[in-house]
Design a protein around this nucleic acid. Structure first.
Ligand SMILES: [Mn+2]
Ligand SMILES: [Mn+2]
Ligand SMILES: [Zn+2]
Ligand SMILES: [Zn+2]
Lengths: 132, 132
DNA sequence: TCTAACCTTAGATATATTCTAAATGCATGA
DNA sequence: TCATGCATTTAGAATATATCTAAGGTTAGA
Protein backbone atom coordinates (compact mmCIF):
# COMPACT_ATOMS: atom_id res chain seq x y z
CA UNK A 1 0.00 0.00 0.00
CA UNK A 2 1.11 3.49 -0.88
CA UNK A 3 0.41 4.92 2.58
CA UNK A 4 2.85 2.46 4.18
CA UNK A 5 5.57 3.77 1.86
CA UNK A 6 4.74 7.35 2.79
CA UNK A 7 4.71 6.39 6.43
CA UNK A 8 8.21 4.92 6.16
CA UNK A 9 9.52 8.02 4.36
CA UNK A 10 7.88 10.28 6.94
CA UNK A 11 9.77 8.44 9.65
CA UNK A 12 13.10 8.83 7.88
CA UNK A 13 13.30 5.22 6.73
CA UNK A 14 14.79 4.56 3.30
CA UNK A 15 12.29 2.46 1.36
CA UNK A 16 13.22 -0.99 0.08
CA UNK A 17 11.03 -3.90 -1.02
CA UNK A 18 12.00 -5.85 2.10
CA UNK A 19 11.05 -2.99 4.39
CA UNK A 20 7.72 -2.51 2.62
CA UNK A 21 6.90 -6.19 3.05
CA UNK A 22 7.81 -6.15 6.73
CA UNK A 23 5.91 -2.88 7.27
CA UNK A 24 2.77 -4.21 5.61
CA UNK A 25 2.68 -7.03 8.12
CA UNK A 26 4.01 -5.56 11.36
CA UNK A 27 2.22 -2.20 11.20
CA UNK A 28 -1.20 -3.81 10.92
CA UNK A 29 -1.06 -7.02 12.95
CA UNK A 30 -2.71 -7.54 16.32
CA UNK A 31 -0.67 -10.72 16.92
CA UNK A 32 2.33 -9.28 18.82
CA UNK A 33 4.72 -11.43 16.76
CA UNK A 34 8.39 -12.00 17.49
CA UNK A 35 11.06 -11.54 14.85
CA UNK A 36 11.05 -15.13 13.67
CA UNK A 37 7.28 -15.10 13.18
CA UNK A 38 7.64 -11.97 11.07
CA UNK A 39 10.31 -13.74 9.02
CA UNK A 40 8.06 -16.77 8.41
CA UNK A 41 5.20 -14.48 7.35
CA UNK A 42 7.18 -12.21 5.06
CA UNK A 43 8.95 -15.11 3.33
CA UNK A 44 5.63 -16.17 1.79
CA UNK A 45 6.03 -13.31 -0.69
CA UNK A 46 9.77 -12.65 -0.32
CA UNK A 47 11.31 -16.13 -0.23
CA UNK A 48 14.90 -14.90 -0.22
CA UNK A 49 14.64 -12.39 2.61
CA UNK A 50 17.17 -13.09 5.32
CA UNK A 51 16.62 -13.33 9.05
CA UNK A 52 19.22 -10.58 9.57
CA UNK A 53 17.18 -8.17 7.45
CA UNK A 54 14.07 -8.89 9.49
CA UNK A 55 15.93 -8.21 12.75
CA UNK A 56 17.66 -5.14 11.28
CA UNK A 57 14.37 -3.76 9.99
CA UNK A 58 12.37 -4.38 13.16
CA UNK A 59 15.09 -2.74 15.24
CA UNK A 60 15.14 0.19 12.83
CA UNK A 61 11.35 0.53 13.08
CA UNK A 62 11.68 0.60 16.88
CA UNK A 63 14.36 3.30 16.64
CA UNK A 64 12.13 5.35 14.34
CA UNK A 65 9.08 4.98 16.56
CA UNK A 66 7.03 2.90 14.12
CA UNK A 67 6.73 -0.06 16.49
CA UNK A 68 7.58 -0.79 20.11
CA UNK A 69 9.60 -3.75 21.38
CA UNK A 70 7.88 -5.43 24.33
CA UNK A 71 10.12 -7.76 26.35
CA UNK A 72 7.31 -9.09 28.54
CA UNK A 73 7.61 -12.85 27.96
CA UNK A 74 10.42 -15.28 28.57
CA UNK A 75 11.44 -16.30 25.09
CA UNK A 76 11.65 -13.80 22.26
CA UNK A 77 11.02 -10.05 22.27
CA UNK A 78 7.71 -9.21 20.60
CA UNK A 79 7.10 -6.23 18.30
CA UNK A 80 3.98 -4.13 18.72
CA UNK A 81 2.56 -1.66 16.17
CA UNK A 82 0.53 -0.06 18.93
CA UNK A 83 2.96 2.61 20.11
CA UNK A 84 0.42 4.45 22.23
CA UNK A 85 0.25 3.74 25.96
CA UNK A 86 -1.60 0.53 26.72
CA UNK A 87 -1.50 -2.53 28.96
CA UNK A 88 -1.04 -6.23 28.15
CA UNK A 89 -2.89 -9.38 29.12
CA UNK A 90 -1.07 -12.66 28.50
CA UNK A 91 -3.16 -15.83 28.16
CA UNK A 92 -1.09 -18.40 30.04
CA UNK A 93 -2.51 -21.38 28.12
CA UNK A 94 -2.08 -20.12 24.57
CA UNK A 95 0.63 -17.50 25.00
CA UNK A 96 -1.54 -15.03 23.09
CA UNK A 97 -0.98 -11.40 24.12
CA UNK A 98 -3.97 -9.05 24.16
CA UNK A 99 -3.89 -5.27 24.22
CA UNK A 100 -5.87 -3.58 26.97
CA UNK A 101 -6.80 0.07 26.42
CA UNK A 102 -5.04 2.56 28.68
CA UNK A 103 -8.44 3.41 30.21
CA UNK A 104 -9.21 -0.22 31.10
CA UNK A 105 -7.06 0.02 34.23
CA UNK A 106 -6.40 2.96 36.51
CA UNK A 107 -2.95 3.11 38.14
CA UNK A 108 -2.36 5.47 41.06
CA UNK A 109 0.91 6.15 42.85
CA UNK A 110 0.35 5.81 46.59
CA UNK A 111 3.72 6.11 48.39
CA UNK A 112 7.38 5.12 48.25
CA UNK A 113 7.90 6.26 44.66
CA UNK A 114 9.75 9.47 45.48
CA UNK A 115 13.15 8.02 44.56
CA UNK A 116 12.00 7.00 41.09
CA UNK A 117 11.65 9.12 37.95
CA UNK A 118 9.06 7.15 35.98
CA UNK A 119 9.28 7.57 32.17
CA UNK A 120 6.70 4.91 31.32
CA UNK A 121 4.79 2.09 32.89
CA UNK A 122 2.30 -0.59 32.05
CA UNK A 123 0.28 -3.22 33.84
CA UNK A 124 1.10 -6.78 32.75
CA UNK A 125 -1.72 -9.20 33.56
CA UNK A 126 -1.63 -12.98 33.24
CA UNK A 127 -4.50 -15.45 33.32
CA UNK A 128 -7.02 -17.02 30.99
CA UNK A 129 -9.08 -15.39 28.29
CA UNK A 130 -12.65 -16.44 28.99
CA UNK A 131 -14.40 -18.66 26.42
CA UNK A 132 -17.13 -16.58 24.87
CA UNK B 1 23.01 -21.74 57.31
CA UNK B 2 20.91 -24.37 59.00
CA UNK B 3 17.64 -22.56 58.38
CA UNK B 4 18.19 -22.60 54.62
CA UNK B 5 18.55 -26.40 54.79
CA UNK B 6 15.33 -26.68 56.79
CA UNK B 7 13.63 -24.36 54.36
CA UNK B 8 14.64 -26.59 51.42
CA UNK B 9 13.42 -29.74 53.22
CA UNK B 10 10.15 -28.04 54.13
CA UNK B 11 9.59 -27.32 50.45
CA UNK B 12 10.25 -30.94 49.46
CA UNK B 13 13.68 -30.28 48.00
CA UNK B 14 16.33 -32.95 48.47
CA UNK B 15 19.35 -31.24 50.00
CA UNK B 16 22.73 -31.26 48.23
CA UNK B 17 25.77 -29.03 48.67
CA UNK B 18 25.08 -27.38 45.32
CA UNK B 19 21.49 -26.57 46.25
CA UNK B 20 22.56 -25.16 49.61
CA UNK B 21 25.06 -22.87 47.91
CA UNK B 22 22.52 -21.66 45.39
CA UNK B 23 19.86 -21.21 48.09
CA UNK B 24 22.19 -19.17 50.28
CA UNK B 25 22.63 -16.68 47.46
CA UNK B 26 19.29 -16.58 45.66
CA UNK B 27 17.03 -16.62 48.72
CA UNK B 28 18.66 -13.52 50.21
CA UNK B 29 19.67 -11.34 47.29
CA UNK B 30 17.96 -8.12 46.27
CA UNK B 31 19.78 -8.13 42.92
CA UNK B 32 17.21 -9.96 40.72
CA UNK B 33 20.02 -12.02 39.13
CA UNK B 34 19.69 -14.21 36.06
CA UNK B 35 20.91 -17.80 36.00
CA UNK B 36 24.37 -17.02 34.70
CA UNK B 37 24.94 -14.41 37.41
CA UNK B 38 23.97 -17.01 40.01
CA UNK B 39 26.46 -19.41 38.42
CA UNK B 40 29.27 -16.85 38.56
CA UNK B 41 28.49 -16.11 42.20
CA UNK B 42 28.18 -19.69 43.40
CA UNK B 43 31.34 -20.82 41.61
CA UNK B 44 33.40 -18.68 43.99
CA UNK B 45 32.89 -21.40 46.62
CA UNK B 46 31.88 -24.31 44.37
CA UNK B 47 34.29 -24.05 41.44
CA UNK B 48 33.13 -27.28 39.78
CA UNK B 49 29.39 -26.58 39.80
CA UNK B 50 27.91 -26.84 36.32
CA UNK B 51 25.66 -24.39 34.55
CA UNK B 52 23.07 -27.18 34.11
CA UNK B 53 22.86 -27.62 37.88
CA UNK B 54 22.26 -23.91 38.37
CA UNK B 55 19.46 -23.88 35.79
CA UNK B 56 18.00 -27.16 37.14
CA UNK B 57 18.09 -25.86 40.70
CA UNK B 58 16.60 -22.45 39.96
CA UNK B 59 13.79 -24.07 37.97
CA UNK B 60 13.20 -26.50 40.82
CA UNK B 61 13.05 -23.62 43.31
CA UNK B 62 10.47 -21.92 41.10
CA UNK B 63 8.42 -25.13 40.96
CA UNK B 64 8.59 -25.44 44.75
CA UNK B 65 7.62 -21.83 45.31
CA UNK B 66 10.93 -20.72 46.83
CA UNK B 67 11.58 -18.12 44.13
CA UNK B 68 9.66 -16.59 41.23
CA UNK B 69 10.88 -16.31 37.64
CA UNK B 70 10.31 -12.82 36.25
CA UNK B 71 10.56 -12.51 32.46
CA UNK B 72 10.35 -8.72 32.40
CA UNK B 73 13.52 -7.79 30.50
CA UNK B 74 14.71 -8.62 27.03
CA UNK B 75 17.67 -10.84 27.77
CA UNK B 76 17.64 -13.52 30.44
CA UNK B 77 14.87 -14.47 32.85
CA UNK B 78 15.61 -13.17 36.34
CA UNK B 79 14.96 -15.06 39.58
CA UNK B 80 13.34 -13.28 42.51
CA UNK B 81 13.28 -14.49 46.12
CA UNK B 82 10.39 -12.14 46.80
CA UNK B 83 7.45 -14.42 46.02
CA UNK B 84 4.83 -12.09 47.49
CA UNK B 85 2.92 -9.76 45.19
CA UNK B 86 4.95 -6.67 44.28
CA UNK B 87 5.78 -4.38 41.40
CA UNK B 88 9.05 -3.70 39.56
CA UNK B 89 10.89 -0.55 38.58
CA UNK B 90 13.65 -0.96 35.98
CA UNK B 91 16.39 1.68 35.85
CA UNK B 92 16.93 2.15 32.13
CA UNK B 93 20.52 3.38 32.50
CA UNK B 94 21.89 0.66 34.77
CA UNK B 95 19.45 -2.17 34.16
CA UNK B 96 19.01 -2.53 37.93
CA UNK B 97 15.57 -3.84 38.93
CA UNK B 98 13.99 -2.48 42.13
CA UNK B 99 11.11 -3.98 44.06
CA UNK B 100 8.16 -1.71 44.76
CA UNK B 101 5.85 -2.74 47.60
CA UNK B 102 2.37 -3.85 46.55
CA UNK B 103 0.96 -0.84 48.41
CA UNK B 104 3.15 1.66 46.51
CA UNK B 105 0.77 1.60 43.54
CA UNK B 106 -2.98 1.13 43.42
CA UNK B 107 -4.42 -0.65 40.38
CA UNK B 108 -8.14 -0.48 39.67
CA UNK B 109 -10.05 -2.26 36.91
CA UNK B 110 -12.19 0.28 35.09
CA UNK B 111 -13.86 -1.39 32.06
CA UNK B 112 -13.27 -3.83 29.22
CA UNK B 113 -11.80 -6.58 31.41
CA UNK B 114 -14.88 -8.80 31.46
CA UNK B 115 -13.41 -11.28 28.97
CA UNK B 116 -10.28 -11.86 31.04
CA UNK B 117 -9.78 -14.08 34.09
CA UNK B 118 -6.83 -12.41 35.80
CA UNK B 119 -4.66 -14.77 37.92
CA UNK B 120 -1.93 -12.24 38.68
CA UNK B 121 -0.71 -8.85 37.58
CA UNK B 122 2.03 -6.37 38.27
CA UNK B 123 2.96 -2.87 37.24
CA UNK B 124 6.30 -2.65 35.41
CA UNK B 125 7.76 0.86 35.53
CA UNK B 126 10.81 2.13 33.65
CA UNK B 127 12.81 5.28 34.15
CA UNK B 128 15.68 6.57 36.23
CA UNK B 129 16.37 6.04 39.90
CA UNK B 130 16.97 9.49 41.32
CA UNK B 131 20.41 10.32 42.73
CA UNK B 132 20.03 10.76 46.45
C1' DT C 1 24.77 -50.69 55.60
C1' DC C 2 21.98 -51.18 51.52
C1' DT C 3 19.55 -49.48 47.98
C1' DA C 4 16.31 -47.04 44.98
C1' DA C 5 15.46 -42.80 43.67
C1' DC C 6 17.36 -38.72 42.73
C1' DC C 7 21.14 -35.41 41.49
C1' DT C 8 25.32 -33.61 39.06
C1' DT C 9 28.18 -33.11 35.26
C1' DA C 10 30.37 -32.06 30.55
C1' DG C 11 29.18 -31.58 26.38
C1' DA C 12 25.80 -31.48 22.80
C1' DT C 13 21.73 -29.36 21.18
C1' DA C 14 18.17 -25.81 20.64
C1' DT C 15 16.73 -21.16 20.29
C1' DA C 16 17.19 -16.03 20.05
C1' DT C 17 19.84 -12.38 18.41
C1' DT C 18 23.78 -9.90 16.60
C1' DC C 19 27.94 -9.52 13.83
C1' DT C 20 30.83 -9.83 9.58
C1' DA C 21 32.13 -8.83 5.15
C1' DA C 22 30.95 -9.25 0.45
C1' DA C 23 27.40 -8.27 -2.97
C1' DT C 24 23.75 -5.49 -4.23
C1' DG C 25 20.51 -1.56 -4.43
C1' DC C 26 18.95 3.25 -3.74
C1' DA C 27 19.06 8.25 -4.32
C1' DT C 28 21.15 12.19 -6.03
C1' DG C 29 23.68 15.36 -8.87
C1' DA C 30 26.21 15.73 -13.19
C1' DT D 1 20.26 8.88 -17.91
C1' DC D 2 24.08 7.40 -15.43
C1' DA D 3 27.97 7.28 -12.38
C1' DT D 4 28.87 7.55 -7.80
C1' DG D 5 28.70 7.02 -2.94
C1' DC D 6 26.48 5.44 0.72
C1' DA D 7 23.00 2.35 2.71
C1' DT D 8 21.00 -2.14 2.64
C1' DT D 9 20.83 -7.10 2.07
C1' DT D 10 22.60 -11.50 2.54
C1' DA D 11 24.59 -16.16 4.19
C1' DG D 12 26.93 -17.74 7.50
C1' DA D 13 29.60 -17.26 11.74
C1' DA D 14 29.44 -15.78 16.37
C1' DT D 15 27.31 -14.90 20.79
C1' DA D 16 23.90 -15.45 24.43
C1' DT D 17 20.35 -18.02 26.76
C1' DA D 18 18.45 -22.33 28.01
C1' DT D 19 17.54 -27.30 27.83
C1' DC D 20 18.75 -32.14 26.93
C1' DT D 21 21.52 -36.46 27.22
C1' DA D 22 23.54 -40.18 29.38
C1' DA D 23 27.05 -41.64 32.47
C1' DG D 24 28.51 -41.49 37.09
C1' DG D 25 27.76 -39.88 41.97
C1' DT D 26 24.83 -38.74 46.16
C1' DT D 27 20.97 -38.67 49.41
C1' DA D 28 17.86 -40.37 52.77
C1' DG D 29 15.23 -43.85 54.72
C1' DA D 30 14.73 -48.78 55.72
MN1 LIG E 1 14.77 -17.47 27.08
MN1 LIG F 1 16.84 -12.10 23.90
ZN1 LIG G 1 0.36 -4.30 22.59
ZN1 LIG H 1 11.16 -8.44 42.68
Amino acid sequence: MMNQIKRLRDHGVLVTPQRIAIAEYILKTKAHPHADAVWVHVRRRHPTISRATVYNTLNLFVEKGLVKAQPITGGAVIFDPNVRRHHHFIDEKSGIIYDLPWEAVKVTAERGLSGFEVREYQVVLRGRRRRR
